[in-house]
Amino acid sequence: MNEGRELEWVSLDPDPVIEAYKRDVDRTLIRENLKLTPDERLRKMVSVLRFLEEVRGSKATK
């Protein structure tokens, strides 16, 4: 069994593709999420998932 405690080396230098994506990140959403606890963030995500399931379900029954 692997007893290694080190992570593989990986470059964390700025990546042009990631930097390009970063410009489109909605930081207002992030700032709102950072006001919540981790528990509240997960519960919020689950409520979004439930909503999406309901929308999918209502489409399927039409």
Binding site: I18, Y21, V25, R27
Partner: peptide, 11 residues
């Protein structure tokens, strides 16, 4: 994952 990494780095 690139888009996710961008968001995580923004966080």
């Amino acid at each position: 994952d690139l888009e996710r990494i961008a968001e995580l780095e923004a966080i």
